[in-house]
């Protein structure tokens, strides 16, 4: 009975919420990300997942998801955890990693092929940042050029951007996540912002504009007027090739498909084929030369051998 009441009251409250959410939609950015992988991830995929999860204080890491075909079940799972984003690592063949970024209740879903994975640990970079500090998200200018890139940008923004006032987030900003488009792929990097003494030469050339504005906001922890920024990479690194964008969450019509993406299976098959092709060509050549020799009467196909009288086998028979 209590459960029924609860659900009913919840429903009504949801309506209320929706009503005032329209008013407060501009202000409130509530994101929760369900981070999980499929079965069959390698250690590297797992570490990458952990790295990303550690950077997402608004994330909820879950156990491995069992199915690879019924991804729509992730919607329910996300709902169960009150998540409105899903970051799903799908490993195939124990080597290929596909990353799904999805906005859960009603899409879209972006599927990427992840390459060049390097986890934080294996990259011996010196950078470090607070766990759960809000990153500055840096997007390449190219993200504004194409609709599909704009969608991807928005998805990244909501998944990787830690919402303001997230529960476990820290109050300072000390890292940048950068997303760049190059070669039709999206390259993801993570840098620490380290404040250094500003060199005299560049003092006040680029921050000149906001220098006076900074003074009123001096109530901050540090004056830091004469500091410059430099970036130190933290990791992880990975490269994402967009494959497909679906309109729904793990379903719905496909609204973008990247034709330039060639599945790694195909690439491997081509490689194998090329390798096999070499052998085939060689055999062909051999056969041809044999045939030619036969035609010229040079060879009967099998090498003749004169029985030599002084053969060891004969001598010591």
């Amino acid at each position: 009975m209590a459960a029924v009441y609860k659900s009913l009251s919840k429903g009504s409250s949801k309506e209320d919420k929706e009503a005032d959410s329209h008013a407060a939609a501009e202000r409130k950015n509530k994101q929760r990300v369900l981070v999980l992988s499929s079965r069959g991830v390698t250690y590297r995929h797992r570490h990458l997942l952990n790295d990303l999860a550690s950077m997402l204080p608004h994330g909820r890491k879950d156990a491995k998801f069992d199915s690879k075909s019924k991804l729509y079940q992730l919607n329910e799972l996300a709902e169960l955890y009150n998540c409105n984003n899903v970051l799903f690592f799908e490993a195939r063949k124990g080597k290929d990693l596909y990353m799904w970024f999805s906005k859960v209740p009603n899409g879209p879903t972006v599927k990427f092929f992840a390459q060049n994975l390097h986890t934080m640990e294996e990259l011996h970079f010196q950078g470090n940042c607070l766990k759960g500090s809000r990153p500055i998200l840096s997007f390449d200018g190219a993200f504004e050029s194409e609709p599909y890139l704009r969608v991807i940008k928005e998805v990244f923004m909501q998944i990787f951007g830690v919402p303001q006032g997230a529960r476990k987030s820290k109050p300072f900003i000390d890292h940048v996540m950068s997303f760049s488009v190059a070669d039709g792929k999206i390259w993801v990097r993570n840098y620490e912002i380290r404040e250094v003494e500003r060199a005299k030469g560049e003092a006040g050339n680029d921050d000149n504009g906001d220098e006076p504005d900074k003074k009123p906001s001096k109530g901050g922890p540090k004056g830091g007027k004469d500091t410059d920024i430099n970036l130190i990479e933290i990791g992880p690194r990975f490269v994402l090739t967009p494959i497909v964008i679906q309109e729904g969450a793990f379903g719905g019509p496909i609204i973008y498909e990247n034709k330039r993406f060639i599945s790694p299976n195909k690439i491997r098959a081509e490689l194998r084929k090329a390798k096999a092709g070499r052998h085939v060509a060689r055999m062909e050549q051999q056969r041809e030369s044999l045939a030619r020799r036969k035609q010229l009467g040079l060879d009967d196909g099998k090498p003749k051998k004169e029985p030599a009288g002084l053969d060891t086998r004969d001598l010591f028979a």
Binding site: I136, L137, F139, D140, G141, M157
Partner: peptide, 12 residues
């Protein structure tokens, strides 16, 4: 609110 910066030029 969002802390997102889109650079003016294409990195590529």
């Amino acid at each position: 609110f969002h802390q997102t910066v889109v650079s003016s030029k294409r990195t590529e």
